[in-house]
Design a protein around this nucleic acid. Structure first.
Lengths: 256, 256
DNA sequence: GCGCGCCTTTAACCTGAGTCAAGTTTCGAA
DNA sequence: TTCGAAACTTGACTCAGGTTAAAGGCGCGC
């Protein structure tokens, strides 16, 4: 478990897919462009813009347990997660850790800090083997000064995140552990299920229970106890990381 | 204590300082422009841009205790606080209230929700008589599509807010009540004092203790108890809403 | 200057959630 | 297939902070 030296590599031109103008069709560049075309922030951009963007993008892998950055590290761009899971967390001086978010493929992180030109306030660590993109600050800023629509998307993204975070603050301060867990299960189910579901459904926890407990501001022990309370009430069944919700309507009603 | 009907008025052209082109110098318009020129988000804009902006801005007053908007109300723009204090808070179904932020002159709020085109998730209530500006969505969006620098400022503002909120989540989850209060006093002092201060300093609480307690995720009673613990430890003295910090260095050291 | 409300304090008690310390299960590597 | 580490569970105990209730106190309008 060591720090990925992605930030250093950023400054080395050799590692970038740097293609002389007029001949921008190296295989790496093309495949990178294909990846980029799928990220929501960039959709709507022309091929040319994507291609220009790609010059500031680096694809890389990280093994399970690697720390991408620590609190206090300088920020040279933001990350986009292609595959795997990553936790964002802070650690108190006495070693306690609080997970803020568990990132999944398609999520990006680190934008806010990048825009403020400040060091990271949280740390990021992979929970599984991962494949990511690192998008350098300068190409983002260039595109921003060129394209108001791109700005709009960034603004929409930041607003969304602010919204989620406020919802988190609300649940942390207004709901007890049991309700936070139920709320989490319901949201998790909602993410998977395409349509509104009824009756019996199953949810698979994205990672180990300790991490999820921390995400919900609980200890692992308390999380375990609440889960078993819910089993005793006949609301759920637990099979390793899979939670079977016996009757989702009844679970919803048991809130509040 | 009733809801200000600002949102309705928004749609009535008569209430806007609507001046025919080429003759934009009504006294209200001019004084509004003068106000706008001072708000950080708009500085750097030309007189013409400010003037155009002013057409979507409405100045208004609200008495102590008025609710500007409730959770669930539609959002037609954002607010800028000129004078007074306002709390942003959410309320749980069982009547409990959690204050998220106490706004002071120069702060703005409601941008994120405006950009997402969603109803408010929090409520806003004045703590004192207030004077505010309401900036309509459409002029913001217009200016955004015109001016990337303006976008940059909005992005910077949102990033900043995200940053603060994350810091809040950190203190809520990693620090106990005593440390949250000490941290609050130190930050409050920092805001007032121009240079780094030493020794004895005084801080005046911006509003009543119950509200501040809620802002720090504490009950009024617990807040009171901690304050008196700190008095017993000789760290502070309390005189109504004024807290005298006996020795700020010692208070800092008592953290952690 | 009086009296009424609303903050604020204080005390006694309660409880949700954390801590500590054993277990027990699971799972991956050898 | 076994071994060991990590994840999870369980129980007993502790404690920070919430609840309830009853006084103060102080600011403000009349």
């Amino acid at each position: 478990m060591h720090t990925v030296d992605c930030l250093q590599r950023d400054n080395s031109p050799a590692s970038q897919t740097d293609v002389p103008p007029g001949c921008e069709a190296s295989p790496e560049h093309v495949s990178l462009c294909r990846l980029l075309a799928h990220i929501p922030l960039l959709n709507g951009l022309s091929d040319q813009e994507i291609s220009r963007f790609a010059r500031g993008v680096r694809e890389f892998k990280a093994e399970k347990g690697e720390v991408l950055f620590h609190r206090g590290d300088p920020c040279h761009g933001f990350h986009f997660l292609l595959e795997g899971q990553i936790k964002l967390a802070f650690t108190s001086s006495d070693g306690h850790e609080k997970v803020i978010e568990i990132m999944r493929p398609g999520h990006s992180f680190g934008e806010a800090v990048m825009f403020m030109d400040k060091p990271y306030v949280v740390m990021a660590q992979t929970l599984t083997d991962c494949r990511l993109l690192h998008i350098a600050k300068n190409v983002v800023f260039e595109e921003m000064s060129r394209d108001p629509l791109f700005c709009r998307k960034i603004i929409a993204g930041l607003s969304q995140r602010l919204h989620h975070l406020i919802a988190d603050v609300e649940t942390y301060s207004l709901r007890n552990g049991r309700d936070r867990i139920i709320g989490y299960l319901l949201r998790e189910e909602e993410m998977n299920g395409d349509q509104v579901t009824q009756g019996r459904v199953s949810v698979r926890l994205p990672t180990n229970k300790g991490t999820i407990a921390s995400r919900l501001n609980l200890t692992q022990e308390h999380f375990s106890r609440v889960l078993h309370d819910l089993i005793d009430s006949g609301l759920i069944e637990v099979e390793g990381r899979t939670i079977h919700i016996v009757d989702i309507e009844r679970l919803r009603d048991s809130l509040n």
